[in-house]
Computed example of a mutant assay.
Amino acid sequence: MIINNIRMVLDDGVVSGSLEVHDGVIRHISTQQSRLPQALDGDNGWLMPGLIELHTDNLDKFFAPRPRVDWPAHSAMSSHDALMVASGITTVLDAVALGDVRDGGDRLENLEKMIDAVITSQQRGVNRAEHRLHLRCELPHHTTLPLFRQLVDKPGVSLVSLMDHSPGQRQFVNIQKYREYYQGKYHLSDEAMARFEQEQMENAQIWSDANRRAIAEECSLRNIALASHDDATEAHATESHQLGSVIAEFPTTEEAAYASHRHGMHVMMGAPNIVRGGSHSGNVAARRLAELGVLDILSSDYYPASLLDAAFRVAESDDNTFTLPQAIRLVTRNPAQALGLDDRGTLEEGKRADLVLARRHGEHIHVDQVWRQGIRVF
């Protein structure tokens, strides 16, 4: 396969020309146009590496599209996968939450079904994107460590994050924001919310530190990438580094982002934060971290189409901190490096032919075609 008439977003610049793929691998990159009649016309679009998503909750929406609606696993997985590739994502870590659900919650009921769907569909070769697993471990809960031990050796587990959403710290330093979020999510009365808040604080005292240390140790033994989550202070970042974290997911302050970056962790922020212009929780804006030079990875989190959109917004920002190649690294090379996936993430001869062809239509960037290992999937 040859793709002609394209602007290739390489690691260090944008080059016009053509790209040749053979047996699922990029074999040749040329600054010349191919004269072969079978070459595909890229119509002067941007050709980029396939996007790599490390943290998405999107799968939940398809398994439980409405409260008390239990959707068939095959259909849910297929629909989720289709949305991923339509957004230009060719490698996706599907995040499943351990320990953060109240009794009867959809995520708890669907946990095993979702994990089995990801593993089975990947093994059968029916997915268009490559799907792996990200275990999100809510630390202040008695079920978290047993569930983690039950799931950590499942095929495809590639990332584990350590979360603590108890009131008064990290994402919810602002208690009022905590109450607004959970009272709205679970439709609690003021009295019920007060009981819920007290229960979460007591659980954190009992379980958080012990679970954090145990899970980090088991990830180290298995060589599974570890991520912190919502660190708010320099002390949080230092602790995460000492536990072996290689990714700092969604630090909530400039202080925590700077400290994480200084410790060599990849600082990851939400692409929706870029698109919306700030954090929905009132924390530090991802664009601000980009301006400060401490943003390394973007994640679509809850909105897959935000990933490519956000990268272009970063590149086109008025402060000009990032060139387009540097911005595209946030969603390709950098997440690949964080996971040790050396076979993808850049347009380079010998790398996997995971490719995205996109162009601007008006004010928006649209994904036109997507290939995974040289096979067109969108």
Score class of each variant (00 low, 15 high):
4 N>M: 11
29 I>H: 01
35 R>M: 12
35 R>Q: 14
49 P>R: 12
69 V>E: 13
80 H>R: 00
81 D>A: 04
84 M>F: 03
100 D>S: 09
115 I>C: 09
116 D>S: 05
117 A>M: 08
120 T>L: 09
121 S>L: 01
124 R>G: 05
133 L>I: 15
135 L>W: 10
136 R>T: 12
139 L>Q: 00
142 H>I: 12
144 T>P: 10
144 T>G: 08
151 L>Y: 14
151 L>M: 12
153 D>I: 04
156 G>D: 06
158 S>T: 13
171 Q>N: 04
172 F>W: 11
173 V>S: 10
174 N>L: 05
174 N>D: 15
185 K>Q: 06
186 Y>S: 07
188 L>W: 00
191 E>F: 03
194 A>M: 06
197 E>M: 09
208 S>G: 01
209 D>S: 03
210 A>Q: 09
213 R>C: 07
214 A>C: 07
216 A>R: 01
230 D>H: 07
232 A>P: 00
251 P>G: 11
256 A>E: 02
275 V>K: 12
279 S>Y: 02
280 H>D: 00
284 V>K: 08
299 S>R: 00
304 P>F: 07
305 A>W: 01
307 L>E: 02
308 L>W: 00
312 F>T: 09
316 E>V: 01
327 A>N: 04
328 I>P: 00
335 P>M: 09
340 G>P: 08
342 D>P: 00
348 E>Q: 14
354 D>P: 14
363 E>Y: 07
372 R>L: 06
374 G>P: 10
378 F>K: 12
